[in-house]
Simulated assay, not measured.
Amino acid sequence: MFNVIMRRYDWNDPTGSIEVERMFEFTDSGLAARFMDNGVPALDRLRALPCLFIPEGTHNEVCRVGTVTSARITGNEVRFEYAVDPDVPPLQNAALFALKSQLDMDRHRHNFDWSRNHWAVKDVDLYRFLLRNVNPRRQRPTVFTIPEHQGIEPQLVSVMMPFDAGFGPVYAAIQQASAACNLVTRRADEIWEAPGIIQDVVSLIDRGRIVVCDLTGRNPNVFYEAGIAHTLGREVIIITQSEHDVPFDLRHLRHIRYLNNNEGLAGLAEALQARMQTVLGH
């Protein structure tokens, strides 16, 4: 069995609410009765079930799988907190809607059960459904390794730039901007944690809250590292001394252009600080 909680979600806010009167809508009456105590939803028993957190709609809306970690009735609302399962990738409503009968989410011919806030219970093994129907995970890399679960260090700025003395002042500007945001910077040449440098680089990228990539000079290593950072879903800030050094495939992304002189580096530090504050939500 699993819960369906349909409402609007902000995935950065792990809280929500549903009107009590909408509890057990689109749920078999016998199943709903199993989760009622003296006419009140048995929230502790409901919390033991996995949950599909899904916004209204049947198209490209993003939904997640996880659990309700706490719930209580306050007035005419059930207020709850939730956690998403990091092992299940984000899903799209359209993919689930195409298989709605397997989820027992096809109870109304006008699809009202996909367009109304509610909390339902379905007598379906959600994880078995996902194993059968959701694409398997991609093959894991062999050139380097990444941990099963990400471990982002919230104060870490990982810096990818050429290992060249001429970039020392640039790195100092990045450090200045980071310090102003209460962040710390690290480059791969400052650590030696693995026998191969590629593993240190990937580990540094994977742990970074923000990844700064300097594409100046079209350095192939930095291009490779920027690709890894984007693949891992990190917040990437691109900087360069020349917009022509930004590959065509990345030119649609905003980047910071700077001059490698005192005035230019001061401007770089200022622009980086503003961008970092935006990423951090300050």
Score class of each variant (00 low, 15 high):
Ser115Ile: 01
Tyr127Ile: 01
Thr142Phe: 05
Thr27Asp: 00
Ile238Asn: 02
Arg207Asp: 10
Thr145Glu: 14
Asp125Ser: 13
Lys100Pro: 04
Tyr82Met: 12
Arg254Pro: 07
Leu126His: 03
Asn60Tyr: 05
Ala266Pro: 08
Met105Asp: 06
Ala188Trp: 06
Val212His: 00
Pro55Leu: 04
Thr278Glu: 13
Phe248Val: 03
Leu232Lys: 14
Ala48Tyr: 12
Ala229Phe: 02
Ala83Asn: 14
Asn117Arg: 13
Glu56Leu: 09
Pro247Arg: 05
His59Trp: 14
Asp28Thr: 03
Arg207Tyr: 07
Gly166His: 12
Glu243Met: 12
Leu52Cys: 09
Leu259Cys: 09
Gly281His: 14
Gly168Ile: 10
His252Gln: 09
Asn93Gly: 05
Ala83Tyr: 09
Thr58Ala: 06
His252Lys: 09
Asp85Gly: 11
Asp125Trp: 08
His230Arg: 10
Gly267Arg: 15
Gln139Asn: 12
Thr27Gln: 00
His118Gly: 08
Ala226Lys: 00
Ala98Met: 14
Ala120Val: 04
Ser178Phe: 14
Gln241Ile: 06
Ala172Arg: 15
Leu265Tyr: 03
Tyr82Val: 09
Arg72Asp: 06
Leu46Lys: 01
Asp13Ile: 10
Leu96Ile: 04
Gly39Gln: 03
Glu263Leu: 07
Phe163Arg: 10
Ala180Trp: 07
Gly57Ser: 03
Glu190Phe: 07
His230Asp: 00
Arg109Thr: 02
Asn261Ile: 01
Val78Ala: 02
Ser203His: 11
Thr216Tyr: 02
Pro162Phe: 12
Gly168Phe: 02
Lys100Leu: 11
Asn261Tyr: 04
His118Ser: 04
Leu250Tyr: 05
Asp245Glu: 08
Ile210Gln: 02
Ile73Ala: 01
Ala229Gly: 08
Asp189Trp: 09
Leu204Arg: 00
His230Ala: 03
Ala95Met: 14
Pro141Asn: 02
Leu215Glu: 01
Ile228Thr: 10
Gly168Ala: 13
Asn76His: 11
His252Thr: 12
Thr15Glu: 15
Leu272Tyr: 06
Arg7Asp: 08
Arg137Glu: 11
Phe24Thr: 04
Arg254Asp: 09
Leu204Asn: 05
Trp11Ile: 03
His282Asp: 12
His252Phe: 13
Arg137Gly: 15
Arg116Thr: 10
Pro89Arg: 15
Thr27Lys: 00
Glu61Met: 03
Asp189Glu: 10
Thr145Gly: 12
Phe2Glu: 04
Asp125Leu: 07
Glu19Pro: 11
Ala94Gln: 14
Ala48Leu: 10
Val143Lys: 05
Ala33Ser: 13
Leu131Asn: 15
Arg34Ile: 01
Asp44Met: 12
Leu215Lys: 01
Asp85Lys: 13
Gly264Trp: 02
Val65Gly: 03
Leu43Ala: 05
Glu235Asn: 15
Leu280Thr: 04
Asn262Lys: 13
Gln155Met: 08
Ala83Met: 15
Ser115Thr: 08
Ala165Gln: 14
Ala229Tyr: 06
Gln199Asn: 03
Cys51Ala: 15
Asp28Val: 08
Ala266Ser: 15
Gly66Arg: 09
Val62Lys: 05
Ile73Glu: 11
Met6Trp: 10
Ala271Arg: 15
Val159Cys: 12
Met276Ala: 09
Tyr127Met: 08
Ala188Leu: 09
Gly57His: 07
Ala226Asp: 00
Met1Cys: 07
Ala95Val: 13
